[in-house]
Design a protein around this nucleic acid. Structure first.
Lengths: 353, 353
DNA sequence: CGCTTATCGTTTAGCGCTTGACGATAAGCG
DNA sequence: CGCTTATCGTCAAGCGCTAAACGATAAGCG
């Protein structure tokens, strides 16, 4: 360590295995074995072990994770590709993943994609080049399947967290949008609503799937006239604007209930309804989807379909780790499908009050 | 590549510099120089260059980022330590950071701390061991300064995004809570409110600072009785409960306005007020802080103090990159202080309506 | 007493990449 | 024609770590 040496960014304390080895008078290999070798194999004298352990502690040795990743078969790196972390539900998933990763001392790469498939692919290859042990994709991507095809080709261990997509390209943790939507529709139907409007997000597979279930439900029940509307984002802004139009020019066609395929969408619609002087739930019932934290704090509290994002994130992490440790083939891994629940709050009421 | 070889997780395509070198008939060194050597230095014949470039493209070579990080002086890795990503404001900051990191082809490590200082420190050392080039800390940590002390000791390039803390330990991008709180208070005062309650989050420095400004303001204006209340979380749940108590047993002491030091806190209070039959803004004015996306969609829309999280994240990233490339000393770096703005919506009105 | 068997550790090799030091060839010059 | 100078590239070292292969010493055994 001469003075004129090139300084690297950050302070490398520079305590390496070699330092510990020379300090305790054994070889680098021995130190490595003692510090993290599995018990099976070469035995080490207890005296040597404690001496090395002591030296490591005294010098404050910390392993260089980069070197370990380069050498070893595991990098302890996980890539997370998130469609949109602004979506509260996806954020919960991220928290769940973070939790299990932390428990296993894995580091998490975050890639926020903002719906763009090509960004997702770029992150995928970046994570691959970083030797990430696995990749989790939260939410389906715009353009959908082709992007996931590429991603699943780039990397062996890919897990999805989303609605069940058309083709099953990778294993994953899925919320069952079909049964969730059925719950929402049956809830409204049983309350006596016969004219129901559905507002969904056209950008995501989930949104498209849910509105599809809505259509089928309405047809099967012979509800002649039904209106299904797509918006472009699961955010309050576009749905609020849509709501303003919907409620002003009679575009609702006398509908008494609204099924919004995400809670944030419901928020925008509720506000538009309020401004149009439409009382919820007296004149209009509304059901959301996701049960995000704020759903219980709207006025009135939102009836919605609940799926625990944190839990799904945890399960996705577990699934991925399981695949990695078992070196499982994609085909041998069973999906985890969570059945959502209906959380009835005060935004829905019997029709014709 | 024998058949029985140990398989590593993920599919290593295994196209290395050596493969490209042997394919194009030059040395590994030359390939490395051509692919990413700076122009200065050893010249390369154009014919050789194109030949190598072609081979690299044909074989689909991608650099091993782990190896590069190990060898080189830069890892292209950034650590983000986030107090709480569930906080919409912090999430925006994260998005801003993600944006600039992506533009520079940096990978982002995410560490979600959930307020625990020891977790933050654990992430700090993990990122350090991963040779992260820099670290960004979003939000102050519980216990505050000591944790940041350790963090700033572990790593040379640390940047904070938060309110300005007591001691200045690391450079950062700061929202000016003092002027923000002043805006909020002056707004209420100028509307004629004299009895104002402040609800803040005791857990964060921001919350404590803002309530302090509130106290000073009230004292300076000779507002004899003022009530300042702390809650334990910037979430709607605890503030809702607090609100229920506050509005029921006359604990408000006839106050006509409320200053909530975060929007989510305001949400909980608004709901409690609604349920207690208190009309906003007719009987009670309320001001929030942060101007998160949903603030415009509450009923009524929330008057709040606006600071752009995305912008702050971007600035923090820029600041950090600037420090790294300039190899700047911490003391030579100027903070970026953003002055918040008041966004007047409909949750506030003149007193005594 | 020469042999195997356990015990405890070291030597060696190499992950994929970068970089300073070192050829080797051809041209330029007095 | 011997010398410098420019041009184009290779060699060797090493980042810090892991793991297979290989000693070396002492004890156990017929």
């Amino acid at each position: 360590m001469t003075v004129g040496e090139v300084e690297r960014p950050g302070w490398r304390k520079g305590v390496t295995l070699r330092d510990v080895a020379s300090d305790s008078g054994v070889s680098v290999t021995t130190v490595s074995r003692i510090l993290n070798g599995r018990e099976s194999g070469i035995p080490i004298r207890a005296e040597t072990r404690t001496r090395v352990l002591e030296a490591a502690a005294r010098l404050g040795y910390t392993p260089n994770l980069l070197a370990r990743g380069l050498r070893g078969s595991r990098s302890s790196l996980l890539g997370v590709i998130a469609r949109d972390i602004s979506d509260p539900f996806h954020l919960q998933v991220l928290r769940g993943i973070n939790e299990v990763a932390r428990a296993r001392e894995y580091r998490l790469f975050l890639g926020h994609v903002d719906y763009r498939a090509e960004v997702a692919i770029a992150y995928g290859s970046m994570f691959e080049r970083s030797h990430a042990d696995g990749i989790i994709v939260i939410g389906d991507l715009e353009g959908g399947d082709p992007a996931l095809d590429i991603l699943s080709q780039q990397h062996r261990y890919v897990v999805g967290v989303t609605d069940r997509t058309g083709r099953r390209q990778v294993p994953g943790v899925y919320g069952d949008s079909v049964s969730g939507s059925m719950l929402a529709m049956e809830h409204l139907w049983s309350l006596g609503h016969r004219s129901i409007v559905c507002v969904s997000d056209a950008r995501t597979y989930d949104g498209r799937r849910r509105i599809e279930v809505y259509r089928e439900f309405m047809e099967r029940h012979g509800a002649a006239e039904h209106i299904a509307v797509h918006i472009t984002d699961p955010e309050p802004a576009p749905s609020y604007e849509l709501g303003t139009r919907l409620f002003s020019d009679g575009a609702m066609g006398g509908a008494s209930a609204l099924y919004a395929t995400s809670d944030t969408t419901a928020f925008g619609l509720m506000k538009a309804a309020f401004e149009a002087g439409i009382a919820i739930p007296d004149q209009l019932s509304i059901v959301g989807y996701d049960d995000i934290d704020l759903a219980a704090y709207t006025i009135p509290p939102l009836t919605t379909i609940s799926q625990s994002g944190v839990e799904m994130g945890r399960l996705a992490g577990d699934l991925l780790f399981d695949m990695i440790t078992r070196q499982a083939q994609r085909e041998d891994v069973a999906d985890v499908v969570l059945t959502p629940k209906l959380v009835a709050r005060q935004s829905t009421a019997a029709a014709g009050r």
